[in-house]
Amino acid sequence: MMTNLKIQVVNSIFEVMETMFFLAAEEQQKSSSKDSALFEFSDLKACCIDFSGGFSGKIYLVAPLALLRLMTEYFLGEKGDNLTDEHIDGTFTEALNMIAGNALRKLDDQPYMGLGLPKLVDPSQVMNIEDYAFFNTVDGPMASFFELTSPDENHKK
């Protein structure tokens, strides 16, 4: 289940980034936060969303402000000068909402899983995670990981 969920989250990031933000994302091979350039950015933002159903957990997304600003420009079709923090934060959390919903609905062997409301979290809380999936876009890096808080008994399969 862990592997299947990770595959769906990664595929969902590709799909959402391309469809809604017109950005091609490419997965990096690195999986440790210690050797990723992403965590050298001083203006990182992070958000998370809860899900529950056959099993429960959280999906996180981490990206630098510069990338989020550009994603917001592409998403809204507005120049950066017109954008507020509310636009950027709202775009970031909505991106995660779409990624999570899109990934979870593709888990065919699971009963319905509901999503919570996406929210911003302190990026320092998630910088030492080892099991990130890292991505590169032409405009900057981003990363995602998930954790299961109430796994079903088959979650390790």
Partner: peptide, 26 residues
Amino acid sequence: TTEGSKEKIDEFMDKGAAGYIRKPFT
């Protein structure tokens, strides 16, 4: 909506939605 499971979509339609669009959309 991002809620795209068949179970949920059926519920939306049964309760009276005229249609649905899954996010991400074109």
